[in-house]
Amino acid sequence: MRTLIVASSLIVLPLLAAASRPMWSAPANAAAVLAQPAAAGELTLDPVHSMALFRIQHLEAGQFWGRINALSGSVAWPMDDSAAPMIKAVAELKNIDTGSEKLDNNLKGPTFFNEKEFPTIAFTSTGGTRVTERHWTLTGDLSLHGVTKPVTVDCVVTGVGKGPTGPKVGFECQVTIKRSDFGMTWGIQKPPKALGDEVRLVIGLEADETKAE
């Protein structure tokens, strides 16, 4: 009887394993936004001059700042400010920069951003309301750490200038989120109060017309 159980276990369990579907599906990759060319009238983000700064409280003391360089995406905004800017911005977490290579690696790891599974942070605006001239409150979806949630972003048009390929528009957007809403909980309770829950994001964007290839 025992031999029978052993033999059947050896045969049945691997077969069950092989027959079942994989548990995992490919992670949602917000970088797919990057692959889409900017539509007519849209401006393309200039990655050299677009970045996101994040701020978090450390040990209940100082506010620690880090940045994510080289944002990409697009902005659709009528220059006469007649409508809210529609922003698609993607930050690749491989570009995280705190000034410490060790801390960068720590932040990319599974304790924090888990960059191997969730390589990007993406914001896509869905609408906006005017605050004053060239100052908008945008609503949109923020995808971070595999979680997408609606957020409200304060966005100011910082200027309209001229670049080599045409008009260049600058934006500065700010939003404060709770990282625990996105499943990033290390340091809030475990270990206690090592890092704050609230993260302030300041996003500097510069967009211009993409050169025809």
Partner: peptide
């Protein structure tokens, strides 16, 4: 028994 079962499950899941 242990390694074949656990190995197969790990391989798949």
């Amino acid at each position: 028994i242990v390694t074949v079962i656990l190995g197969a499950l790990a391989w798949k899941f």
